[in-house]
Amino acid sequence: MTGRRIRAAVVTAVLAAGLAGCGIRSTEVPTDFGPAPSRVPCLMSGSSIASQSGSEVPVQVFLVCAAQLVTVDRAVRVHEGKATTDRVRIAQALLDELAASPSEGEKQAGFATDVRGGITVSGPARGEPEEAVRLSRPPQDLSAFALAQIVCTLADSAASAEDQTVIMGGPGGDPLRRYTCAPEVRSRPGSAEPPSETVR
């Protein structure tokens, strides 16, 4: 055996012993352990509802996570008001909740919201359907994600019409439209607009 072959044999033996000592089995076949775990699980480790008082109501709101709409449990305080209906108070509480910054746990799970604060809700004008709500900002001026969040959250609440649609418009004479939270809106809120039709 030449000197070169002797050195090669020694190196091979040392490497084999090192791998065995580390508990690593050498292999010539690539091993597939599947895709890496997602860094955006869209799952909360526990309930996101804070300690509730007697005046708080458990609700679900739709937040954005991994470019989809996902429900999150919240607790809202519905303020009393003589000049507003229950539907208007509920809708306002839900919009305020959507505009609130996600909790630290929600942020870590990948949740975000595109709804901005300052939007107020009022009831229908005379002659309009009683299920209607009017926003202080025209719905068509909202971002695609914000409109989808609002429509799906209201449709899944007591603020919706009997068929779980949302009759909504902007201020003044802005036309009322009936919105639907369709499955494609939940899965692709950035590109699929909530189906709607003008309410006459």
Rank of each mutant, 00 (worst) to 15 (best):
C42G: 06
C42D: 08
L43G: 14
S45C: 10
G46S: 15
G46P: 03
S48A: 09
S48G: 12
I49H: 00
I49D: 02
A50T: 14
Q52A: 15
S53C: 07
G54D: 08
S55W: 00
E56L: 06
V57G: 04
P58N: 07
V59G: 06
V59P: 11
Q60F: 13
Q60P: 01
F62H: 02
L63S: 02
V64D: 02
A66N: 08
Q68N: 12
L69F: 11
L69W: 12
V70S: 11
T71M: 08
V72A: 05
D73Y: 05
A75C: 01
R77C: 04
R77K: 09
V78N: 09
E80C: 01
E80P: 00
G81Q: 13
G81K: 14
T84S: 14
T84C: 08
T85L: 07
T85P: 02
V88P: 00
R89T: 02
I90E: 01
Q92P: 07
Q92I: 04
A93I: 02
A93S: 14
L94Y: 04
L94W: 04
D96S: 11
E97V: 08
E97N: 02
E97F: 03
L98A: 02
A99C: 12
A100S: 15
S101A: 14
P102T: 14
P102V: 12
E104S: 14
G105S: 10
E106L: 08
E106V: 07
K107R: 13
Q108V: 15
Q108Y: 06
A109R: 05
A112C: 06
A112L: 09
A112W: 08
T113V: 07
V115M: 05
V115I: 12
R116G: 07
I119G: 00
I119A: 03
V121M: 09
V121H: 02
V121W: 03
G123A: 13
R126A: 15
R126Q: 14
R126G: 08
G127A: 13
G127Q: 11
P129E: 04
P129T: 06
E130Y: 07
E130N: 12
E131G: 08
E131D: 15
E131Y: 06
A132R: 00
V133S: 10
R134N: 05
L135R: 11
R137L: 12
P138C: 08
Q140R: 14
D141T: 15
L142A: 04
S143M: 02
S143K: 11
F145W: 11
A146T: 03
A146E: 09
L147S: 00
A148Q: 07
I150S: 00
I150L: 14
I150N: 00
I150F: 04
C152K: 10
C152I: 14
C152D: 09
L154S: 02
L154Y: 01
D156Q: 11
D156W: 08
A158F: 08
A158L: 13
A158G: 15
S160Q: 09
A161H: 14
